[in-house]
Structures are given as structure tokens and as C-alpha cells.
Amino acid sequence: MSRSKTVKRRKNISVSHAKQIVLPALTKSVSAVVSVSNEEKTIAGVLGELERLPLQDIIIVMNGCTDDSFQMARKQSRAAIVHYPERIGHDVGRAIGSRMTNSDIVLFIDGDIVISAAHLIPFIEAANQGVDIALNDISPFVPPFSRQDDVTRLKYFLNRVLGRDDLQYNSLTAVPHALSRRAIHTIGVNHLLVPPKAHALAILKGLTVRAVHTVDVISNNRVRTENTGPESDVARLIIGDHIEAIKAAMDHSGTRLHLSRYSRAELAKWRNSL
């Protein structure tokens, strides 16, 4: 299906000294990709924080916006704007945005949560120091196992079968996160369309993946009809994405993956400790 789009480019974004925050010297270029869907109330604040960072590009991918998000973004910033009249989803938007910059580091955020520049810096710093995928550590906000939904349990299970228990509930399904250019090339832009699969491929291909900073995007997540409840469209989509990721891991490492043969009692003891 063809999609019309409007693009307004902005390169080499300048940052005013009045707004710029202090960053350690960066040796790599950085851009930000913002996925937006009807965020007229928050987009100005999101862009205001990004403008405080020394970014080469800010790329806004608007999908299915029916409010004044486009006008607000144009008024607030001279960022590059890609406008898709139809809903393409945040994951597709991030993949599109990653193609529009050649920066060494790409920071990904969404337009519905205003995250201060100070909380975005750790992701940039980690990638600048050699981390290929710098993840948001949301584990502190996850409830005990008995109160977790299926999506949350799948996130942990995926990391476990990949041999990365240390990552707990963290993956590319949560923003903010930053990817190195090497990670984007190694994973492949097309695989960014399925964040759990991209996460699995990054680990399987030996990229450096770490949870580097904690930003509460759980309690601040905007509630929408399609992302509420275990039977929501978003929940079903993410569950399917994780199944695809596990299949990719099995194809790479065999059906047992990193799982050992535990007795039912041992599995129950592990589960109840969470």
C-alpha cells in the first residue's frame, strides 16, 4: 500500500548556549528519532529537551496523526519531519527514522513522554563509550511474578533463553534506548520493525547490550484504547513479536537455547523467588 508523506529536513542542529547542558566530550555524532502519534500535548516538551543536546539530526516520524502534532512540531523545531497519514506504528517509525541519518549513535524516544535531557544523556554516553545497544532499565518498576502480565513474563523469558538473565525485563521494546551505527548495520534496519527480534539478534551476533539507566516510562506511559489490557492489540502484537524472536534464537542456537533441564520443583522455586 502506498503512503503519501511530507518530509522537512534539518541537518546539523545548533544548540543555543542558554539551553545546552554540559556533556563529556563526545567522540561520535548523535541523532534522535522521535515516533509520534497524536502527541500535540507533549511534543513541544519532548523537542524542547532534545534541543538541549548536541544532536546532528532530530527526525520526527508522524504516523496517523489527526491532531495538531505536525503544526506543534513545526512551530517548536526545525527538525526533519516525515508525515505518514496512516498509522504505521512506533516500531516502523523508528526503523524509518534510522534510515534518515548517518550518525554514529541514534537515540530513540517517543513523543508521548517528556524525558529530561539529563535522563537522555546516559544512553548517549554509554553508546559513545562503545555500548552497541544502551537500554532503559525498567526492571525496578516491574511487579512480582504473580502480578506480571504475559508480556512482562515474555520479556524476562527471552533474556533467559538468550543467556542474559542480567538484562531481566529490559529490551528494545522500551524507550529511550540508543543504538550504535554498528548495531543498526549488524541487526539490519528491517529487523528493527520487530524490537524483540532485533534484541535477540543483537545478543546472538555478539553486540554489546547493556541496561544503562532507569527512566520510568511505565507509570508515565500514555494510556490508549489499543494498549490497555492483556487482550489489547498492542499486547497481542508484542507477544507475537516475542514468539518470532524466540524462533530466531532457536534457528541460531538450537531448540534448547540456554535452558538447562530443571525439575518442576526447581522451576517453581525460581519462579517464586521473582
Rank of each mutant, 00 (worst) to 15 (best):
I115Q: 02
A95G: 08
S171N: 15
I105R: 00
V106H: 06
A178C: 12
A118V: 13
A127D: 08
L135R: 02
Y156K: 13
Y156C: 02
P144W: 01
A127T: 14
I121G: 00
D165F: 06
A118G: 08
E125Y: 11
I109L: 15
L107F: 12
A126L: 01
R94I: 10
P140Y: 01
I113G: 02
H177C: 15
A178Q: 11
V114N: 03
M100H: 09
L154R: 06
N102Q: 13
S180I: 11
S103E: 04
N136I: 10
L120S: 10
I121H: 04
N159D: 11
T173L: 13
V114C: 05
I124N: 00
F123K: 00
H119N: 14
A95T: 04
R164N: 03
A127V: 11
P140I: 07
F157G: 08
L120P: 04
S116V: 12
M100P: 04
V175M: 14
R99C: 13
I121N: 05
V106W: 09
R164K: 12
I115E: 05
S171M: 10
T152A: 05
T152V: 12
G130A: 02
G163Y: 06
L158Y: 05
N159W: 03
D149Y: 10
D132R: 04
M100F: 09
L158M: 14
S103Q: 05
S98A: 15
V151C: 12
I96Q: 14
N136Y: 09
R164I: 01
R99V: 11
I113A: 08
L135Y: 07
L135G: 05
D166W: 04
I133R: 06
L172V: 07
V161G: 06
D166Y: 05
A117L: 07
F145E: 07
H119Y: 12
H177W: 14
A174H: 15
D165Q: 10
G111P: 00
P176K: 02
G97F: 01
G130N: 04
I124G: 02
V161N: 04
L158D: 00
